[in-house]
């Protein structure tokens, strides 16, 4: 009986531990997400650590998460190559840290229209192409290490 109790308490302790992926995250120097997105050139190719509440997780492959920014209505996607790290759905609502670099990709208007049409085809919902007015730049954070508390 004692052994079972010990095993259960061990399991409970284990589940309450932080989950880590990749390299160790350095929490000593944090860069606010708003600062990172406000001056992209300054942080280009520079390794930084960000912190945020996880607001969304890829439910198919666990290959991305979204962090809430310190600025209202702002979030940043944390993206890894499929299988490099697999983020759990249970991370939603938890505080997480990620060390890595900011990456940006600009898509042309034609590319965005093509993406929207493909998405509409897949989901069966009509695409609102009027919202696509020109090229857009998307930002992603490419982590080398992530910790979910």
């Amino acid at each position: 009986m004692k052994k079972i109790a010990l095993l259960i308490s061990l399991l409970v302790c284990t589940t309450s531990f932080a989950q880590s992926f990749g390299k160790k995250v350095s929490k000593s120097e944090l860069t606010p997400i708003s600062e990172l997105l406000a001056d992209v050139k300054k942080f280009e190719k520079k390794e930084v650590t960000i912190k945020g509440m996880v607001t969304n997780v890829c439910s198919m492959r666990g290959c991305w998460m979204e962090f809430a920014s310190d600025k209202e209505y702002q979030s940043l996607r944390i993206k890894v190559r499929d299988g490099d790290m697999v983020f759990p759905i249970s991370a939603k609502g938890k505080i997480a840290y990620a060390t890595g670099t900011l990456n940006h990709t600009t898509f042309s208007k034609d590319q965005l229209i093509s993406f929207a049409q493909k998405r509409a085809e897949k989901t069966g919902k009509p695409a609102d192409l009027s919202k696509i007015t020109g090229p857009e730049t998307y930002y992603q954070f490419i982590p080398v290490g992530v910790t979910i508390e």
């Binding site: 509440m53 607001t55 209505y73 939603k92 609502g93 938890k94």
Partner: peptide, 22 residues
């Protein structure tokens, strides 16, 4: 008890609960 909440934009509020409930 909830885990946290976040206004995605002025129109959308997300509230996170334990047991993978949103």
């Amino acid at each position: 008890k909830m885990k946290g909440k976040f206004w995605v934009d002025p129109n959308q509020l997300k509230v996170f609960y334990p047991q993978d409930t949103t």
